[in-house]
Write a protein that binds this DNA or RNA. Structure first.
Length: 578
DNA sequence: AGTTTCGGCGCC
DNA sequence: AAAGGGCGCCGAAACT
């Protein structure tokens, strides 16, 4: 009843299970049981469940209060391994391979995204194809061998294990929900937007701003219609290409001020207004659907509710339960610290080896005291900036931190040339369309550039010409990127993706630390995590976050002087955290 | 009429 | 002439 067990769900609602030996193969007979929840509940000693899809199985367990210690998500591991092998672009997807291994129907892949407002997670989605335990175990054993075939098997194992842990965290966050005060939310909306009018039209404040904009133009203008606004500016003798804020705000015209205010409030109204509240908040909880590893870089995404884009002003509505607190923690300067850890640049490791403000340290070392410029330069180097203030200081950055800049430069070159690019733990950026597969890359052979995309006449507008000819629906648009754009993507990928590697370990460790408490992880956004806990546990949670960050740093990057401090705040309301 | 793309902007 | 990365979401516009 202990150790590692495999579990496969069956068409009839039952499950097949088997204990696994050290080699990953069953050590006993395959058992059939009738009920998933009872099967798992009655085996508390199992330390790791090997199953096909956490998102498919775990919500059903959580719905009845059953948690598991660890799992191994075979489907997710398949995706990561195929990516590492440079085979992700092949027609057969991970899910399809698993399904056809069992002779079953090919399930949709990627899984259809639900996103019906208020939908009860994937529990009620159409069930996906089942795989027999024998097939599941065979795929699992094969995956163990494929881990060994990677350049860093230990890191790859850490990656698949930690992303499986991330999927447990995501499912638990989905079950918990983010504490949300509808009352406070309505107050905020009323303060910002004024009264709502019957009929669902603009609230008072927006109607007033529409009037102001119209008065400034001398005719009726709808500020929410870009075409209308551009025309109105043209009639006023001002040429603007778009109505983007950065372009409008430098225009000298009386309509500009109310227009920008309108856009700010309009955004809140349509994206996080009363109808959002109606759709997404129930019983004091906002329940987005977190999806671990939903992006190529390993960052999470959410389905529905825009959970990762909650405007700052709306965070006022995130309120802890009575007697409970929110521990809000965000990693300090995560990306440059990760760059220091992966590039091993001596100078950057030195500044990242202190917990104090890294951008200020970079500024002190490389520039003449302006922290903002240092931050822009560092982020510009990571993002592949090609113009603007960041570029101005890139040369200084290159002098002071040559290995760090060379690291992202090399990633960019690899991306441009269509080679595979990997995060520290081995998550792999897909090769360019038409590029040769991993074998050639491993052998160090020069890569074909593929079709000369972007070489068409006047193709200055990027997206239009691209098509999904290679079926890369897992990353729409990537195939149509020109080589420079792929270079920028790859440059950012190694840093953003390695940061995602690290945050998975942080979450896994923090989850383990909270297991003995009432504390729950309720929110995660790239470099920021929120734990909802009884007041008495708050300090323990703060300590757990600090320890998890350092442990994750050691586990992910090995011995490194780089520190990974978090800024934590214990608050009753999310908006008070910063 | 239904579906996809675009413009714009929120977050990191 | 030279485009900073990743996302999701909304309504309008453009498409079929």
């Amino acid at each position: 009843m202990t150790g590692r067990w495999a579990l496969a769900t069956a068409e009839d609602g039952g499950v097949e299970i088997a204990a696994l030996g050290p080699d990953g193969l069953p050590v006993g007979p395959v058992e059939r049981e009738g009920d998933l929840v009872e099967t798992v509940r009655s085996r508390p000693g199992v330390t790791r469940w090997v199953w096909r899809s956490t998102a498919d199985v775990y919500p059903r367990l959580l719905a009845t209060g059953v948690r598991v210690e660890r799992c191994y998500d075979v489907e997710d591991a398949e995706t990561l391994l195929l990516g590492h092998e440079g085979r992700l672009g092949e027609p057969r997807s991970a899910a399809a391979a698993l399904a056809t291994a069992g002779g079953g129907p090919v399930p949709p892949d990627p899984p259809a995204r639900s996103a019906e407002p208020g939908a009860q997670s994937s529990l009620f989605e159409p069930r996906r194809a089942h795989v027999s335990l024998a097939d599941l175990v065979a795929v699992y054993a094969d995956q163990q061998r494929r881990h060994d075939a990677t350049a860093h098997p230990d890191r790859m194992r850490l990656l698949t294990a930690s992303e499986s842990a991330g999927m447990l965290v995501a499912a638990e966050m989905n079950a918990a929900g983010l504490p949300w005060s509808a009352e406070v939310h309505r107050e905020v909306l009323h303060d910002l937007l004024g009264e709502r009018y019957a009929g669902g039209g603009e609230p008072r404040r927006l109607a007033e701003l529409t009037d102001e904009v119209s008065a400034a133009f001398g005719r009726r203008v709808r500020p929410d219609l870009p075409a209308d606004v551009i025309k109105a500016f043209a009639q006023a003798g001002v040429k603007v290409r778009s109505t983007r804020r950065w372009e409008i705000q430098s225009v000298d015209h009386p309509a500009v001020k109310p227009l920008l205010e309108y856009k700010r409030l309009y955004r809140i109204w349509v994206a996080h207004g009363w109808s959002w509240l109606q759709d997404w908040v129930r019983d004091g909880r906002f329940r987005p659907e977190f999806l671990a590893g939903g992006t190529v870089t390993g960052r999470w995404v959410t389905n529905g509710g825009g959970a990762l884009q909650i405007p700052k002003v709306i965070r006022r509505a995130v309120v802890a339960d009575p007697g409970w607190r929110l521990v809000v923690a965000d990693a300090d300067q995560m990306e440059p610290r990760v760059l220091a850890a992966i590039s091993r640049d001596p100078g950057l490791m030195e500044v990242a080896g202190r917990e104090s403000d890294l951008y200020q340290s970079v500024s002190d070392r490389a520039f003449s005291g302006d922290r903002e410029q240092a931050k822009l330069a560092v982020l510009g180097a990571v993002y592949g900036q090609t113009s603007g203030d960041g570029l101005k200081n890139l040369a200084a950055l290159r002098r002071r931190f040559p290995k760090a800049v060379a690291y992202v430069d090399e990633a960019a070159r690899a991306g441009e040339e269509g080679r595979l690019v990997r995060t520290w733990l081995g998550r792999t950026c897909p090769p360019a369309a038409g590029a040769a597969e991993g074998a050639a890359e491993e052998a160090g052979l020069p890569q074909e550039e593929g079709p000369p995309e972007g070489a068409g006449a006047g193709d200055s507008d990027g997206q239009s010409g691209g098509d999904g000819r290679d079926g890369q629906q897992w990353m729409p648009g990537y195939a149509s990127l020109n080589s420079r754009a792929r270079g920028r993507f790859a440059r950012n990928f190694v840093v953003q993706g390695s940061a995602a590697d690290w945050t998975l370990l942080v979450l896994a460790s923090l989850r383990q630390a909270c297991a003995g408490m009432a504390a729950e992880l309720v929110f995660f956004q790239h470099d920021e995590v929120i734990v909802h806990c009884p007041e008495a546990e708050a300090e323990a949670v703060v300590a757990a976050i600090r320890e998890s960050a350092e442990l994750a740093g050691r586990l992910t990057f090995g011995e490194t002087p780089v520190r990974f401090p978090f800024t934590t705040a214990v608050v009753g309301c999310y908006a008070d955290a910063k």
